[in-house]
Design a binder for these strands. Structure first.
Lengths: 205, 205
DNA sequence: TTCGTCATGTAATGGGTTACATGATTAC
DNA sequence: GTAATCATGTAACCCATTACATGACGAA
């Protein structure tokens, strides 16, 4: 139970929950899931898989199970090692998702936890969102104080950096506010609180 | 020249450039300078100071030099070790600020580099800003592509995370745009491009 | 006199990357 | 046949944190 990288563990279990996969694909899905935030390397992934295997949370499976026929018929070629979640794995994953407490809303974990909110119960979701909100609020207070003390002797660039940082956090707080409100009203779908279009095709420059 | 943590090195040299300081204070100023972004611990600071000392970039000085009378008259009490920049240190710092290239606009360094733009020449400033902008643009393209490929099979939470991440990066790009424009027009002060108030005293909740 | 904060440090550990080594398969 | 990408792994290193050890000083 050496707890090698809790975020990686969580993410892998969560992804394998959807469907069996091999390492290479796992990593791609991992990095695209966390979008602009993070990018793991193989040096992190494979040792982690090794450990999950040793813990009996995942198992090597021969090839793609049932449902989706692969684009190319490379069914039993070897080379690729497909992993799937075991019963203990599923159990452990749910246990992890149930855990609340600081780690869940700190920077390192929050995004992963959020990504799996679909499998997290409503109460836990709300507690994590609120935990993060007050965490950010603390941070805001700290920065505002230190800024109030020192803004006079800061050059314009440092000041601008400060300002932009502050604004970023304020923005995330507002984001959390809408999410919390949505949770309270019991919608987990995107039916409210005018948010921007998730369209993927416009830009200047 | 073992190059222990280039950001720490840069930050420490930059701060000592303003005035001599002891470690404890250095760390506070460091963390408040980088505001909401980072927080270094002593385990990082002191070994770094040790190395800077060994490289002859900083030197231990007896006590506060000339200018500011300290709040409490604890002038020569011992315990505190005040560091100051040497001539070689100043030279090395300027050399570091002159370096352009990927590291300067990656996430780990950009904020520190930006914080010292006041001592960076105009051309370098512009190149770093543009470097970062195109870096972020790449990231945007990547996320947009992977989103276009997979948005249909994503649950609402993952999608919302994706959307928020995307919006954050878009926002930083716009920020960089105003900064670049300002640089091109030759203002380093805050005289243009309607940006929000840096006031420190308002909030809901 | 005890508690909080200032102040300096170190050893163990953690979480991750880089660079490397290896080889199969696909596309040209 | 050769280049690109898929695919799996490991060892060496890097940057930073945590936890600990130590002690001085000021305020209650």
């Amino acid at each position: 139970m050496s707890r090698r990288s809790s975020v990686m563990t969580l993410a892998v279990l969560g992804l394998l929950h959807e469907s069996p996969m091999h390492g290479y694909e796992l990593r791609k899905r991992l990095n695209s899931m966390l979008g602009s935030f993070r990018a793991f390397s193989y040096g992190t992934l494979y040792p982690c898989l090794k450990e999950l295997l040793a813990n009996g949370w995942i198992a090597e499976s021969s090839t793609a199970t049932a449902d989706a026929a692969l684009p190319h018929p490379l069914s039993g070629k070897r080379g690729r090692i497909v992993y799937q979640l075991t019963a203990e794995g599923k159990e452990h994953f749910q246990a992890l998702l149930g855990e609340v407490g600081p780690t869940a809303w700190e920077d390192e974990q929050f995004d992963v936890r959020f990504a799996f909110f679909g499998r997290t119960d409503a109460e836990t979701r709300l507690r994590i969102l609120e935990g993060r909100r007050s965490r950010l609020q603390e941070r805001l207070d700290g920065v505002r104080q230190s800024m109030a003390r020192t803004w006079e002797r800061l050059d314009s660039y440092t000041l601008e950096l400060q300002r932009h940082g502050l604004e970023s956090v304020e923005r995330e707080v507002r984001w959390l506010d809408t999410l919390i409100e949505d949770e309270r009203l019991g919608r987990s779908d995107g039916s409210a609180s005018t948010r921007g279009r998730p369209s993927a095709g416009h830009d200047d420059n």
